[in-house]
Design a protein around this nucleic acid. Structure first.
Length: 1042
RNA sequence: GGGCGGUUAGCUCAGUUGGCUAGAGCAUCUCGUUUACACCGAGAGGGUCAGGGGUUCGAGUCCCUUACCGCCCACCA
């Protein structure tokens, strides 16, 4: 295991950070030493994340980069914190999507359609595509530094996952939760597959309302006196071509014409079918003045086409209407799928056969026109479901499909019970097992913040959700909490899930069907034997529609009620062979992609085997994903995991924003606004990309990333990544500075002594305390999945506190051998701690310079304040603990910063050469004066000045410009522009007067004094006094200027 | 139609239970290449917190309402 480092960094670090020189090296070490790998037997509390498996349709985009950055941050954080952390990687076969891209490519490159190949042959082509993209995706994740346990990489269609799918299907089948249904499905005629409701996208299109006249079989009276006779009814439709399948006309029973038409029939044009007029509340009454566009357009008569419209289907169920399907699966008019031949021929509808649905629409309208039955055509804009894959309009199509009865209480009901109660507006992060108490990292600050809010404290004793019994109830939490509602309402309104897809790429449905005849008894006896052995299970009434319409639905033209469906448990190839020998054939369809991904938190850990990994890491801890698949994916994982294992798949769901371009559009290939993570890694570095992505991961639902084309490379990029690159460069150079000062050579110049806090400067105490605050804030941010706050708190600490102030302040001390020893202790520890703190976010640069720090100064750490337990690799190093704070230093140092700020401000206003020192006099109360004097070196250095006089009795010099800061008067001598000084003082005076006015108003308000918290009132009064004092001095100064 | 986000500086975004003069990065302007860093340093300017109303001593923050942008669900007569 003691592999040595690949090429070391040069002794002298280059001035600019070059990610290309660092990233491959760190990655090589992590891989070589297997530092991403975890075993269930490893020490630490279990912490697992399963990757949302990217589709193998294409390489990863920026959204993936964001998603995986966050997961890696969590994984590395928990790993450093001592958890037994594992991140399970893998990819998804993405049935429809992948098959579609390969079909398109094959058509483009070979000019062949899928149907021109054998199934095996075509699946092999898809497999090749999958291999290519799985490889590329894996490379991308590795380039990003994702610390996935690559030994556990999975694919939704590989052997272990296939076994899980077979097992899950079989169990559900056996438990009566899978059934064959004849239903109207969302049919995509282009790809010829059924789509889930979620896969249908609504698009607004400009269509027409066609008003068609259907002659009555016998003219009807409308008035009692018989003065007016109906000879026809007019229906309004957007889909005239489906009239060939009409089986009724519906009218609202409240319609005044209903009575006259009761029991009447119409003769359907073209086909001459005689169909009844029925009454149904669903029909909208016509009303030209209504706000409802439907009422405006309606005629009061609705053509009912149960086989081609979901609502008509429902009406058909209510009125037991026949179903006549007039379309073929490719969307052409056909008499082969349920339209009786004699019916076609009766009216001479043959001429429409073979027409595409859109051609048929024109032809039907033309026919009505020719026969004077077209009453009107009006333009109508409405939304139409389109396939999310092929983008053609969806056809509601009657077909045989497999369904999973997710409406069962054991599935959707259980998922609903899993949602945390208080998810209405806030959530408490799940405790990590074993965390908490005084030992836990960040305990101090976390307790504080939790105590001061309405949140319940992290409870170290609460058992992990979902181990046995029903302790998973109410344990599923969403971040941000509002997404719990999305999850909830979906499950409340859930419909049974159509799990079969007419595809070749996917898990073939493990059901064999056949129609045993003379040997039925023998077959049944055999099947019953297998059923009792748990090897197979069967259903005998497959065509029976679920529900009270069974009698009606069973009246299928083919009436093949004896078909048997046999589900075979995994690993029983003998049974499968026997079935095939006896005339059974396997279902040609495959399972919906989400069926296998729904098992992901189980299947990646070895289920259905009760592996050690499964028992250790399932439930996993956090699922990190985008909101678009809360229902499609998260919901199904929850249902499956609860059903099969009686525990949650995860306790926390962290939903991150979607990345859009600068105009708020989705990034997509067709728009050309996508950004390739590898391009950013190449131009800015992986750490820079990760930092930027984490930094922009706020709680909103979308984040915008202005996209530009880099003129040099011609690739898309975004200026937003500069922030990450600049920050990495800053980190690099700060450590470079540190290393220069901590090297052997530097060490020789100073006394070798142990850490002695009593010798620390104010800046030392301040920066250590600030570091500890930062650790606490980072813990808080990460615990709440506030990646933006984590990034920002690190950024502010490192850049502002550490670089801008501390590193500048200690420069004199580092040159003074008496003091350099203590300062070096502090500097080394703070740098070390910072690297630990930021490693999850920017792993490459921190890991690499950590090695350098180890080389230059192996022993680091400030006992009790900032511990740095040694580690060869940063990825394995201990996460910082929150040490003690130094309240005094934290209150004094900012005052010095204010004083320095005031001096700098004056210097800048008078355009003093930055190198030139100025002379400063400060009039301040005794205590403040003492603090300034004690730290005069820092003030002088940072303000580039010499402090001439500091004290309550210091004399304001003549010809000096003046400012106030932290209650002190500051005079910079030699800045003589009197007119400018007068203007400046006047400006300040105006500000002060304005503030005084505001505060006096507040104080004069009796209600304010009575009702506002006392400390605020006191604060206002103090400030008022201060401002008044300042005003007095300002006026004196102005008077002097004349 | 139902639900949910968003609207804060030129741009991208923070702003935690209402409480100091509303912040950051980028961009702009001024000064500066001081031995960690010009992927830098010091400083400046820039906001009626979308509009209107309400609650409150006090509203960017809470409530109502309007407008616009976006997402999800439902709906193809």
């Amino acid at each position: 295991m003691s592999t040595e480092l690949p090429p070391e960094l040069p002794p002298e670090l280059p001035k600019a950070y070059d990610p290309k020189a660092v990233e491959p090296q760190a990655n090589a070490v992590w891989t070589e030493e297997k530092l991403f790998h975890a075993e269930p037997t490893d020490p630490g509390e279990p912490y697992a994340i399963v990757i949302p498996p990217p589709n193998v349709t294409a390489a990863l985009h920026l959204g993936h980069a964001l998603n995986n950055t966050l997961q890696d941050i969590l994984t590395r954080w928990r790993r450093m914190a001592g958890d037994n952390a594992v991140w399970m990687p893998g990819t998804d076969h993405a049935g429809i999507a992948t098959q579609t891209v390969v079909e398109k490519r094959v058509l483009a490159e070979e000019g062949k359609r899928r149907t021109e190949f054998q199934r095996d042959e075509f699946v092999a082509k898809i497999q090749t595509w999958k291999d290519e993209y799985e490889r590329r995706i894996t490379e991308q994740l590795k380039a990003m530094g994702c610390s996935c346990d690559w030994d556990r990489q999975a694919f939704t269609m590989d052997e272990p996952r296939a076994r899980a799918v077979r097992e899950a299907f079989f169990q559900l089948f056996k438990d009566g939760l899978i059934y064959r249904g004849k239903r109207l499905v969302n049919w995509d005629p282009a790809t010829q597959t059924a789509l889930a409701d979620d896969e249908v996208e609504m698009e607004e299109i400009d269509g027409h309302f066609y008003y068609l006249r259907y002659p009555l079989e016998h003219a009807a009276e409308i008035n009692r006196d018989g003065s007016y006779l109906f000879s026809y009814v007019t229906v309004a439709t957007t889909r005239p071509e489906t009239m060939l399948g009409d089986t009724a006309i519906a009218i609202n029973p409240r319609d005044p014409r209903a009575a006259a038409l009761r029991g009447k029939k119409v003769r359907l044009p073209i086909v001459n079918r005689v169909i009844p007029i029925i009454e149904d509340d669903y029909v909208v009454l016509p009303d030209p003045k209504s706000d409802d566009p439907k009422a405006q357009f309606a005629t009061g008569f609705l053509k009912v086409t149960p086989a081609h419209d979901p609502n008509d289907y429902e009406i058909g169920l209510r009125h037991k209407l026949p179903l006549i399907n007039v379309l073929a699966p490719d969307g052409t008019i056909s008499d082969q799928y349920g339209w009786p031949k004699d019916d076609v021929e009766a009216g001479g509808a043959e001429e429409f056969l073979g027409l595409d649905r859109f051609e048929a629409r024109k032809a039907v309208v033309e026919w009505f026109k020719q026969n004077n039955l077209l009453e009107n055509v009006k333009p109508y804009r409405h939304s139409v479901g389109h396939s999310y894959r092929s983008h053609v309009p969806i056809e509601p199509y009657l077909s045989d499909q497999w369904y999973c009865k997710v409406t069962d209480d054991r599935l959707a009901g259980a998922a609903l019970r899993a949602i945390a109660r208080e998810q209405s507006d806030s959530a408490t992060p799940s405790p990590r097992r074993g965390e908490g108490g005084g030992e836990g990292q960040g305990a101090l600050e976390e307790k504080r913040s939790f105590d001061s809010t309405t949140r319940s404290p992290l409870s170290p004793t609460l058992s992990p959700a979902g181990r046995g019994s029903k302790d998973w109830e109410g344990q599923l939490k969403f971040f941000p909490a509002r997404y719990a509602k999305t999850f909830q309402s979906w499950h409340e309104n859930i419909r049974d899930w159509c799990i079969s897809r007419q595809l070749w790429w996917g898990h073939r449905i493990p059901v064999w069907s056949g129609s045993p005849n003379e040997v039925a008894d023998t077959v049944e006896a055999q099947l019953n034997r297998w059923a009792s052995e748990g090897k197979a299970d069967y259903q005998k009434k497959p065509f029976v529609h679920q529900g009270d319409d069974s009698g009606w639905a069973a009246r299928d033209a083919r009436g093949n009620l004896l078909e048997w469906f046999v589900a075979v448990a995994p690993g029983n190839t003998g049974v499968e062979q026997w079935l095939e020998k006896n005339g059974f054939t396997q279902d040609p369809d495959v399972l919906d992609t989400w069926f296998s991904s729904g098992l992901w938190p189980m299947s990646t850990l070895g289920w259905p085997e009760r592996t050690a990994a499964l028992e250790k890491w399932n439930p996993t801890h956090t699922l990190c994903t985008a909101r678009e698949i809360i229902t499609l994916w998260v919901g199904r994982m929850v249902m499956f995991n609860l059903y099969f294992l009686d525990r949650l798949p995860f306790t926390d769901v962290s939903i991150h924003p979607m990345v859009q371009d600068g105009e708020g559009r989705k990034m997509s290939k067709s728009l050309g606004n996508g950004v390739d993570p590898l391009d950013i890694i190449s131009s800015h570095g992986a750490d820079a990309m990760r930092f930027t992505l984490a930094h922009m991961t706020t709680q909103t639902q979308d984040v915008r990333m202005p996209v530009e084309r880099d003129p040099k490379s011609g690739k898309n990029t975004s200026p937003k990544f500069d922030i990450g690159r600049n920050f990495c460069n800053k980190v690099w150079n700060a450590v470079r500075f540190g290393i220069m000062n901590l090297s052997d050579e530097a060490t020789k110049r100073r006394s070798d002594e142990g850490v002695d806090e009593s010798k620390w400067s104010l800046a030392d105490r301040w920066i250590v305390s600030r570091f500890n605050r930062t650790v606490a804030a980072a813990n808080e941010a990460l615990s709440n999945y506030r990646f933006d706050q984590y990034a920002k708190t690190c950024y502010d600490f490192f850049w502002s506190d550490l670089c801008d102030w501390y590193l500048e302040a200690i420069k004199p001390a580092m040159r003074d051998e008496k003091r350099a020893g203590q300062t070096a202790h502090v500097l080394a520890a703070v740098l070390d701690g910072s690297l630990r703190l930021m490693h999850p976010m920017i792993p490459f640069i921190t890991e690499t310079i950590f090695w350098k720090l180890n080389e230059v100064r192996p022993k680091r750490g400030l006992p009790g304040r900032l511990e740095c337990p040694p580690s060869k690799r940063l990825i394995q190093a201990a996460w910082p603990k929150v040490g003690e704070f130094a309240e005094a230093a934290e209150s004094i140092f900012p005052k010095l910063q204010e004083v320095v700020g005031a001096i700098r401000n004056l210097r800048n206003e008078y355009k003093v050469d930055p190198k030139k020192s100025v002379t400063v006099t400060i009039i301040a109360p005794a205590e403040a004066a003492r603090q300034i004097t004690e730290n005069r070196e820092a003030v002088e250095l940072l303000g580039v000045c010499v402090l001439k006089q500091v004290g309550p009795d210091a004399k304001a010099p003549a010809k000096a410009s003046r400012a106030t800061a932290a209650g002190a008067e500051i005079y910079v001598e030699g800045l003589v522009d009197e007119a400018g000084e007068g203007a400046r003082l006047a400006k300040r005076r105006d500000e002060v007067v304005k503030s005084i006015g505001a505060m006096e108003g507040r104080v004069a308000n009796a209600a304010y004094v009575a009702k506002a918290p006392p400390h605020l009132v006191k604060q206002t009064l103090d400030q008022l006094a201060e401002l008044k004092a300042e005003l007095l001095k300002l006026e004196t100064a102005l008077a002097k200027l004349g």
